[in-house]
């Protein structure tokens, strides 16, 4: 809220319009993200992953064979033929290390740098909206994309799983059998955990996006940081820093499927994502509210 606004618009009418306008900024930002062809293409690729996995498993087991009995391949793969619901978990496990965060990195990196590159950022700032609020709107739209991307994978996997494989009571990792309804609830919780896992890279991407005026550079940097973190996470010699890397606890979503739910790593993951969101969100704020916008 600007100084000018505070002085000039104390009228009741303006105050009533205020919440609506605040929402409209968020709505328009979300609309901007989801109207882009790039975003739709990313979501399309994400939706195709479960289809590919499902068909591959179906073809391989068509003659009564089994897959992944040695525990190879993405997690839960050996269970897919018995219960289509496991395709949701397999698909999320397959897309979480790279596909999902890459899509988020592209959207987050593009959010401000892309506007700057195309020269639309200063027009956004011409509107009587504070920079902080614009940044919040950008962050919100990126987080909404995290959720949407995860749900696209999950829903596509559920549809493919229901078409190709039987559905029914599911056996959790601990060997406990629960009803299909509870299985669905757990799948929803898993999708929520995966979406929250992406909050860290969303904030990181937003911060990178405030540093440059080139959308491509911001996307490449964000995805590059993701790959670097994933590689560092693989080396046993670097064990000391690994608990502080944002992808470190990503696979903890599988802990939702234990009986009772094993919270330790899940909570570690959420705390870590919240820390990344706070540090890089405030860094993005510090940078964006003090930088010269020339484009």
């Amino acid at each position: 809220m600007s100084r000018a606004e505070r002085q000039a618009a104390p009228a009741p009418a303006a105050r009533e319009a205020y919440p609506l306008r605040r929402l409209s900024l968020f709505r328009s930002e979300i609309g901007t993200v989801f109207r882009r062809w790039r975003t739709l293409a990313l979501l399309g690729v994400l939706a195709a992953v479960p289809v590919l996995v499902g068909i591959a498993v179906k073809v391989e087991t068509g003659d009564g064979g089994t897959v992944g009995h040695g525990g190879e391949g993405p997690a839960f793969l050996s269970q897919v033929t018995n219960n289509g619901l496991f395709l949701v978990f397999t698909s999320l496990a397959a897309t979480l290390p790279f596909f999902l965060p890459m899509a988020v990195g592209v959207v987050a990196g593009d959010s401000l740098a892309g506007e700057a590159a195309s020269g639309t950022l200063r027009y956004l700032l011409v509107a009587p909206v504070g920079r902080t609020r614009l940044l919040l709107a950008k962050l919100t739209s990126t987080l909404v994309f995290c959720l949407a991307a995860t749900m696209v994978v999950a829903v596509s996997a559920l549809a493919v799983g229901a078409l190709l494989f039987p559905l029914g009571d599911i056996t959790l990792l601990s060997g406990t059998t629960v009803s299909f309804g509870e299985g669905l609830l757990r799948a929803l919780a898993v999708a929520g955990a995966v979406a929250l896992s992406l909050a860290g890279i969303a904030a990181l991407g937003l911060f990178v996006s405030t540093l440059t005026n080139s959308g491509i550079a911001a996307m490449a940097t964000t995805v590059g940081l993701l790959i670097t973190a994933q590689i560092v996470d693989q080396f046993p010699q670097l064990e000391a820093v690994q608990p502080y890397l944002f992808p470190h606890y990503w696979l903890s979503f599988a802990d939702v499927l234990r009986q009772p739910v094993y919270w330790d790593q899940l909570l570690d993951n959420f705390r870590l994502q919240a820390l990344y969101a706070a540090v890089f969100g405030s860094a993005a704020w510090a940078r964006f509210t003090t930088k010269d916008v020339t484009a």
Binding site: G68, H69, G70, G71, A75, F76, S78, Q79, N82, A93, T171, L173, S174, G175, L251, A254, D255, R258, Y262
Partner: peptide
Amino acid sequence: VERAAEYSLIRNGDQVWAYDSGSNT
């Protein structure tokens, strides 16, 4: 507790089950 898998050993009365979720055996 393993990464995205679990090995359980369950004894209930005289029944002893071992379940490996990773390989579904």
